[in-house]
Design a protein around this nucleic acid. Structure first.
Lengths: 136, 136
DNA sequence: TGCTATACTTACATAAAGTAAGTACGTACA
DNA sequence: TGTACGTACTTACTTTATGTAAGTATAGCA
C-alpha cells in the first residue's frame, strides 16, 4: 500500500514543512487531485447544497439541476474519500442514504460558497461583456 | 445576434432582479458556464498566477506545471471572453503577447486564491484521510 | 397486480482534454 | 552560413472523462 508524498516546492523546506502545505503549481502535488474534486462540475454544487445540511442522495439529485445519478455518485465518492463528505447508510429496503459535510468539508464549502456567490452576483457583468463582444 | 437571458430562480423577481443574480443550481443559467471556466483545471491556476501580475504566454506555460499550449490558449480565450483576462498583443516577430486580469478578473482571482490557499494548507489532512482509509 | 421510489452500478455513446506536429520568422552560436 | 531554439499559437489525432440509458431488489400504494 503506497503512501502519498507531498511534492516539494523550489525552496528548501524541512520535512514538517513539506507535510504542511501543498503546491498547486506543481503537477505531481496531490493538491491538484483535491482541487479537481472540489472544483469539478458537480463537486462545487454538492458542497454548496450540503453546506450546513444533511441530504439524501435523491434530494441532492433533485436540488442539483442536470446532474446524472452516475456523476452524483462518483462525485460523492470522491469527496467522501477526501474526507470532506460523510455518508450514512441505513440498511433498509428501499435504500436510505444520507450525506453531510465533515468539519473539513464545511471549511471547503465556505470557500466554494464565497466563489459561487461572487459568480452568481457577477453574472450580469459577464453577460454584458459577452453581448458587447458579439455585437462588435 | 442572440442575447443571453438569465435563468430565474423559484421566487418571483422583478426584471431587474433577474438581471442581478445568477443561480448555479439551475442548469440553464449562464453562471454555470462562467463557473466552468473559472474552476476548470487550468482556469484556477491561470487566475492564481495572473493575480496582480502581467505575464507572457510562455511564462504562464512555464509557471503552470503540466499545462499544454493547447489548453492554456483555450483557457485564456475563455477567460478573456468572460471579461476576466485582458490580452495585449504586440505586432512583432517572434510574437509577444501579455496577459493580465481585468478588475472583474481580480475579484475572481481573490476568491480562487482563498480556495487554493485552503486546499494547499489542508492537504496534509486529506492525505492522512487517504492513507487511513487505504490502511483499513 | 402493476406502478413508483430508493441508491446505486454497468455498458455504451459522446464530448472534452491531452499529445504531437506544423507555422513564420527572428536571435544566438559555431 | 547553417543549425538550433524561442515565440504564440492552430490543427489533426488519441485518450480520457462525462453523459445517457438501462438494470437491480424490494417496499408502499392504488
Amino acid at each position: 500500500m503506497k503512501k502519498v508524498e507531498l511534492s516539494l516546492p523550489a525552496e528548501p523546506l524541512t520535512l514538517s514543512d513539506k507535510l504542511r502545505r501543498g503546491d498547486l503549481l506543481s503537477a505531481a502535488c496531490p493538491s491538484r487531485t483535491v482541487m479537481k474534486h472540489i472544483t469539478s462540475r458537480w463537486g462545487v454544487l454538492v458542497l454548496m447544497v450540503l453546506d450546513g445540511e444533511t441530504r439524501r442522495f435523491s434530494e441532492l439529485r433533485r436540488l442539483i439541476d442536470g446532474v446524472s445519478e452516475r456523476m452524483l455518485a462518483q462525485t460523492l465518492q470522491w469527496l467522501e474519500a477526501d474526507g470532506l463528505v460523510r455518508r450514512v447508510a441505513y440498511e433498509v429496503v428501499p435504500p436510505h442514504v444520507e450525506y453531510n459535510l465533515t468539519p473539513l468539508g464545511q471549511q471547503a464549502a465556505h470557500k466554494v460558497r464565497d466563489l459561487a456567490d461572487w459568480v452568481e452576483s457577477s453574472i450580469p457583468e459577464v453577460v454584458q461583456h459577452w453581448n458587447k463582444a458579439s455585437a462588435s
